[in-house]
Design a protein around this nucleic acid. Sequence first.
DNA 1: GCATTTCCTACTACTCTGATAGGGAAGGGT
DNA 2: ACCCTTCCCTATCAGAGTAGTAGGAAATGC
Lengths: 166, 166
Amino acid sequence: MGDPTHNPVGDNAAMRISARADYAVRAALQLAACTDSGPVKAEAISAAQEIPHKFLEGILNDMRRGGLVTSQRGGNGGYRLARPAAEISIADVIRTVDGPLVSVRGVRPPELSYSGPAESLLPLWIALRANVRQVLDGTSLEDVACSGLPADVKKLAENPSAWTNP
Amino acid sequence: MGDPTHNPVGDNAAMRISARADYAVRAALQLAACTDSGPVKAEAISAAQEIPHKFLEGILNDMRRGGLVTSQRGGNGGYRLARPAAEISIADVIRTVDGPLVSVRGVRPPELSYSGPAESLLPLWIALRANVRQVLDGTSLEDVACSGLPADVKKLAENPSAWTNP
DNA sequence: GCATTTCCTACTACTCTGATAGGGAAGGGT
DNA sequence: ACCCTTCCCTATCAGAGTAGTAGGAAATGC
């Protein structure tokens, strides 16, 4: 008992950022960087960020439907951000391609209800979500691509213990 | 364009707490509550928290292998916490049944590397993870089951805007 | 030896993830 | 008018993970 080499069920994490979300954010950052040089082709983004290009096409399409980017077909078409990079948060991008930021058992925290000794679990999930939002809603594409992370986020990332695995 | 009724791809969230993790925490809380009354049967937990009992059995087993609970078979056997409830964090429980807290595309943040305008994405994920840890590592079973959430967590949960969906 | 309760293995149904393939539709240049 | 480029749409796929269910073997206490 108390087996120190215990490995959980899978090697999969409890809260995971999907490849879609990661790719979407990186694509958006690429668009934020190349701001005043006309539309950027999917192929260019795919090459710059090493994202499978057909997969990326689908993601860019979702972002267009979500109103995050606009597109132009033909000759030298491509994509560009629909709004200034400073007005698009990382959370906006993730929500657009992956839905709500945080859920528990598939439902958003406010829809949950617990009883007995688990009653205070609901406020805990709410606090967790609030903390996730603080980082992802509070950081814009411009912050990441150019001007540097917001002060509070930078502070979190500067703590060396934040970089170590459990 | 900018379709206001846009619904992402699935209705699934970006970062989700699985049913396993939610059940595991609630079961552990139930054990934390019934501390000095001998071992608690899986069936009792399952009834109290409305968790499918065969599913719960598997989860309790994982927690035993992970050294979080001890078990006793036969007559009036059951489960109890292996350590005092104040010394087991919510993160401990989740890691035991679901692996690492946060991952991006299946790998833990420190293993990632980004280039170009996405370079500052790594510290962002690190900050995100730090914030998740702050809540889940900083809250014990006892906090949730009896003594009330830690001050900083309570503060997060008291903000009304934390309770609204985007 | 018998009831109880944990422990183990296997199985199922379904969904999600991370892609790939092929072609159709729009736009621009000449 | 033509053609080339680039986005846009639909379909398909293999593999993995999720949430359970089922049946029985092994331990414990009376």
